[in-house]
Write a protein that binds this DNA or RNA. Structure first.
Lengths: 123, 123
DNA sequence: TTATGTGTATTATATGTCTTAATACACTTG
DNA sequence: CAAGTGTATTAAGACATATAATACACATAA
């Protein structure tokens, strides 16, 4: 479901949040799919249930999952809008990095090259 | 010289490091320019000298400044290579974000648009 | 109804990072 | 020699993270 990297300086709960959000936004977990229970995932990852509880609370706050007391946690409907929002954020990050790169003297060719994979026009 | 933003979740010493590195890489502080002493900058920013000490140690580790005991701290020569390295890092970040954006369904047009300012070809 | 598995909330403890505080010492310069 | 530098050390507090141990309400299947 998710993997924890203990060399990653980010807190565990954040890695869990990002991991599940990633699966949801990519469509790997369709809407209304049930995800592991708090205790299940804690067992699987060998971490404390409270840590998963915190991660799930954050995922619910973000609208990635919804909780049904006594039944479990499920992937939210309307992942599309979450995906769009996330793309906006990524776009803003890329824009900021591009501006910073230009400040340091990067050329437009470099910038386009960093985007990779398409429109490369190699000589 | 540098400004601290207390709403910024990053530690103070890190903000100082990034601020001075930025000034150096942009060329705002030429090579061999003396920067404020540990105690001076601490006074100016109303923070503890130990925090500046830590920031300067990190800047020296990165090669942005060099220290001369009893005299002060100075901007390093060969800022050019540091700038190049930083641009490589930014390029890698942009590449990663671009890949992630494609995974979420971003179009090449979107990606180019996010780079901003040039080659927009607006209709 | 009961048992089991859910989500949820609470309190306590331990650990690590960040920051401040207070010194101390070696070095450079006027 | 005095003042200003870098540098190192020890202590304390605030805060975030994670674990531990419960407790309780709800849903579902036996």
């Amino acid at each position: 479901m998710v993997k924890i990297d203990y060399r990653d300086p980010r807190p565990i709960y954040e890695q869990v949040v990002d991991g599940i959000e990633d699966l949801a936004l990519r469509g790997a977990l369709p809407a209304d799919t049930q995800i592991p229970s708090v205790r299940q995932l804690a067992m699987e990852l060998s971490i404390n249930p409270n840590t998963i509880q915190r991660a799930y609370a954050e995922l619910e706050r973000r609208g990635v999952i919804y909780a049904a007391k006594g039944r479990g946690n499920f992937i939210s409907d309307d992942i599309a809008s979450l995906r769009a929002r996330r793309l906006d954020e990524i776009g803003a990050e890329i824009g900021a990095l591009a501006g910073r790169a230009r400040t340091l003297g990067a050329t437009e060719e470099q910038l386009r090259g960093w985007l990779g994979t398409k429109g490369e026009d190699r000589e």
